[in-house]
């Protein structure tokens, strides 16, 4: 294991964030637990290969995301997202209505997002990762992270706005 990293401390520090990320991807409690557990299992076996201790967090999120993708049977070809086009879908949720929203409704809306937006948007709200780290976790260029986030956030806000109108 990477020098100076205590397994229990690592679990204590990251298991909740990793579970939240996993849950946002799978929308299933058992699958999220499995993914989180599997991630730490891989760390226990291969963590010692990581030389830069400051990369532990990115390593864990990257591994979880890869495990998630690996568990998918089919590969989806993701459409190219045009950053400029997202400006037409700017958020319409108002501060007055947002307080009516609970965590479960937010996760429902998140689950309705296309998969390519769901992962970056989850990492965006978890706030554990910088944009560069999100790019590393998702293995896409920084520009792609930003464009997916812009579009994903705009769509999420539209979905939320719709939920709050009901």
């Amino acid at each position: 294991m990477a020098e100076g990293v205590d397994f229990e401390d690592l679990v204590t520090r990251y298991y909740t964030s990793l579970y939240q990320f996993a849950f946002s991807l799978t929308r299933d409690d058992a699958d999220a637990c499995d993914l989180t557990q599997q991630t730490f299992c891989i760390w226990a076996a291969k963590g010692h290969q990581l030389r830069d201790v400051t990369k532990v967090k990115t390593w864990l999120f990257t591994t979880l995301h890869r495990e998630f993708l690996g568990s998918r049977r089919r590969q989806t070809r993701f459409p190219h997202v045009d950053l400029e086009a997202a400006a037409e879908e700017l958020p319409v949720v108002s501060p007055a209505t947002i307080n009516r929203l609970d965590a479960s409704q937010l996760h429902d809306a998140l689950a309705q997002l296309d998969e390519i937006y769901r992962a970056p948007v989850s990492l965006f709200y978890l706030q554990d990762c910088s944009y560069n780290e999100i790019a590393e976790v998702l293995d896409v260029p920084l520009g792609t992270v930003k464009s997916r986030l812009t579009r994903g956030l705009a769509r999420l806000h539209l979905l939320l706005s719709d939920k709050l109108k009901r």
Binding site: F7, Q20, F23, Q37, A103, H107, Q127
Partner: peptide, 21 residues
């Protein structure tokens, strides 16, 4: 800020940490 707070309100499954350890 509200969305971020709501997002992070999701608790990890009970006993997950103990199970991992």
């Amino acid at each position: 800020d509200t969305l971020r707070e709501r997002f992070r309100q999701l608790p990890a499954a009970a006993g997950l940490k103990e199970q991992i350890l």
